[in-house]
Amino acid sequence: MSGAEKIAVTVTDVVPLNDLVTRFEFKRADNGLLPTFSGGAHTVVEMRDGDITRLNPYSLMSDPMDQSRYCISVRRDDEGRGGSVFMHTRVKVGDEMVISYPVNLFSLDLRAKKHLFLAGGIGITPFLAQTKQLERFNGNWELHYACRTESLGSYVDELTSHHPNETHIYYDDKKQMIDLVNLLEGQPLGTHVYVCGPKGMIDWVRKTATNEGWPREAVHYEEFLAPQPGKPFEVKLAVSNKVIQVGEHESLLEAIERAGVDAPYLCRGGACGQCETNVIDYAGNFIHRDHWLDDDEHAGGQKIMPCVSRFEGKTLVLDR
């Protein structure tokens, strides 16, 4: 069986926060304790939608030491493939669901003298758990959080009331911007910076930090890509000797799983590298969207990350 260990849970609370974001609370279906986790970890939520099973990763935002419950916040994406809309419209208190054990691909570097968090929109969620973890050990942290508008600022009130000195909020509609160059220049030695948000924000922070002379190891980022819809295509799976069709609204990985082939995965967002698959033959163009393979590998035509990447063309044969 692929992926992390599974946990059967019950949905115990559903709280709409604003027009786009809803919080879900899970408790173990057997009333036992959930595993502790480290701030920055995510869980993969299984959504059974008729014949379709969606597996989407969401950052755990509750206190890592609280083993009684897990919380996630889901931003509705009407343009996406339906996972977030399913969570918003179909999941109710009392529902039984299956989630994965926590997996952390965005861990704190505990050597840091100070943790500087930069959040954009729903990218706030891993920092909610990380700040709770650091508070318990008197960690030194500071948060800069950019939201589109005041009404879409999830958890702004909670953060500014509990941590008025550490929290800085920026609203796009008020033309407020993080003064990144000055912020980075003003940090004490030994600071680590963490960014979670839209791709443009991550690229901006990484590039600015590089220009400011920050060591690569001190800059951490997490961006889960949701698989994007695309034109249907056909794939031959050489090991399992199957020909499968990848639909417009499903990922290559989901199509492989639908055909009953067990393929490895963890994050399902192009970041962890677990689902890396060798290409045996192809005639056409890859649409690589992952963060795992480097530019040469993307150009090489020998590997694909089926969780987020697609293909357009006549023939694709995979070693799976």
Binding site: E5, Y101, P102, V103, L266
Partner: peptide, 11 residues
Amino acid sequence: LKFLLNIQQGA
């Protein structure tokens, strides 16, 4: 190393 980096909680 690749294997070890991917060892997960509970497994």
